[in-house]
Write a protein that binds this DNA or RNA. Structure first.
Lengths: 340, 340
DNA sequence: TGTTAACACGAAACCGTTATAGTTTGTCTA
DNA sequence: TAGACAAACTATAACGGTTTCGTGTTAACA
């Protein structure tokens, strides 16, 4: 590795002190104009860039932020990354992306390493499934105790006090289900996740409330709770074949598209026989045939907001204040799968 | 920000020197066993972790690598990130993900900042479209000149000498098209990108060769070249409606699924009337109805291989040697869209 | 009893910057 | 012509580690 040019190199070459070089480059009035110009010209010529590692050490901040997400092959998190990266870069921050792969252990290791190692100034995190199941948030609380800012995104918990960015899951699904009802659906199935996942739980509540408000009865046999992503086909197929349904609300992309496939394979038409609506606006729903209506959570926007909250904390010296939770509005994207 | 505990703190507390603490924690035989144990116990108690920034400064290496990709809302790059992250983490490296958003300028800025700022030890990059169009690779050549290892992935150029990881695009599409021909297709359309994109060009070549080898004539009116992602619907629709085709080979997910939609909307059945095959194995194809056959490029594997090549360079002190290009085999995933 | 080597530890330099506190000059003033 | 003061630099001490080179103590040996 060829060594990069340093202040010392410039100083030696121009026969001035390191301080002079440093100050010249920062346009300090302490240094005479001619010296200043000379140094700057030389630096530009040799393409000098200050060593950020040294600066980090000096300033005790790295200008790096960590983004910890459960998985990446999911359009929602993809969008989040995009949003985070965009704003962070604008503000001169780098983003270190870490995948927990839905594993508690990996989440803990990632956070501990980055936090104690002093590699990042703050965290944006979306909890892994395992973490939510265990309800063990000590690693996060410790981060907070260290005085490192932490922003939780989408998959959050009230057991950690920090800034949060979420969508109004309950209202989003309320709207989705209401939409189905307005389209004439009477027997609407819900395909959701197990309850310990915050968003799954809230979306289920929205479904229940929408039915109630529109005078429809809640039929538990129309609700399927799915744990993993892996084996979702079977229960969905069973639901579609055994229940007489005319609408489906699925809490994520995959469930929605899988349900549509099951419906079509079962010889029914979407949306004529069964209307379908999903949650999260990825490519999967957009490019399905027919295109699937959905509740958009605006992942990019969420990412952008999360960074902004984080940077605000990083840039204000006064600690504490109170924490806030930003709720990003969802919007209903009506496509072919839920009627005209 | 509460200050993290340092060697100095431990030293003061235990009334030994900083060196003693440092050596104890590294299990140096220079230090007596009891002192060593005492220090280690104390460090463990206070959860001491060395400051990686300081270590980076001292060692002149950061244990960070940069991964620069054109976009993220694309399953292929999502998989690549996964693979890179996995191996990198195993080896104690962090991954800084940067998006060029297909922009030359952003690619250059990202690379310059990270390279000169000394934030990373090496790069893995997939070129932006704009970069390939302009054929300006000076930013990459400069990285190389600095002695920083660079691995190019998927979208590469021969104009930069470095390690590369690619798939055999030509062979992959040759196989795909041959498969269609074996299924009885005679008039196979090609939906591809403009030629300056290395992979688009190669995939087109594979198509042409497959036709030739099977005695089919090349009909230029069956080839559609699409520039952006945005307006791909129209030309595809036109192709489907105006040409009498019985097969489609699309060089990416989106084109494939858009073509399928056009075919179905045009009143034809997939695969009975028109067989379809795509490239890259994302969710879009897997969960379409019918599921679309494709050429898998094994993105995760490519990511893994790329990091390994990078780390090998980083860990060997001897420079130069020769560069190698690893070709990852594609595999044909036969699904419903191309017949039984 | 003096020499020496092993042992256990400390001092100091260094990585590249920045910030603070000097130190030279030269000029102007009283 | 000494004294004050500004201008233009330089020296130094951090930041938090690692590492090389001492150094003082003790024990073994001739």
């Amino acid at each position: 590795m060829k060594r990069k040019i340093t202040l010392k190199d410039i100083a030696k070459e121009l026969e001035v002190s390191i301080s002079t070089v440093s100050k010249s480059l920062k346009d300090s009035p302490e240094i005479g104009e001619d010296t200043r110009e000379k140094v700057k010209a030389f630096a530009a010529l040799y393409n000098y860039k200050p060593n950020n590692i040294a600066i980090s050490l000096k300033n005790r901040r790295t200008k790096n932020i960590a983004l910890i997400i459960p998985e990446i092959v999911n359009d929602f998190f993809g969008e989040v990354i995009g949003g985070v990266e965009q704003v962070a870069n604008e503000k001169g921050y780098n983003v270190i992306v870490c995948l927990s792969n839905e594993s508690f252990d990996k989440e803990v290791v990632n956070i501990d390493t980055l936090a104690h190692g002093g590699q990042v100034d703050g965290f944006i995190i979306s909890l892994s499934k395992e973490t939510m199941l265990r309800q063990d948030y000590n690693h996060l609380i410790e981060v907070e105790n260290q005085g490192m800012p932490l922003v939780m995104l989408d998959r959050v918990t009230e057991q950690v006090l920090c800034d949060k960015v979420i969508v109004d899951d309950a209202r989003g699904s309320y709207n989705a289900v209401s939409h189905l009802i307005e389209q004439g659906c009477k027997k609407i199935a819900l395909i959701t996740t197990v309850d310990y996942i915050s968003v799954g739980h809230l979306r289920t509540q929205g479904y229940i409330k929408a039915l109630g408000d529109h005078g429809l009865e809640l039929d538990p046999s129309l609700i399927v709770r799915i744990d993993g992503i892996a084996g979702c086909e079977d229960p969905i197929k069973k639901l579609v074949e055994n229940q007489d349904i005319d609408g489906v609300f699925a809490v994520n992309e995959l469930f929605a598209v899988t349900a549509m496939k099951a419906v079509q394979n079962h010889g029914k038409k979407v949306p004529q026989d069964v209307a379908i609506i999903g949650f999260s606006d990825g490519k999967l729903l957009k490019h399905a045939t027919p295109a699937v209506s959905t509740v958009s959570q605006h992942g990019e926007e969420m990412g952008r907001v999360a960074v902004k909250m984080l940077l605000k904390r990083l840039q204000s010296d006064k600690e504490e204040e109170s924490f806030s939770t930003r709720v990003i509005k969802t919007s209903l994207i009506k496509r072919e799968s839920s009627g005209s």
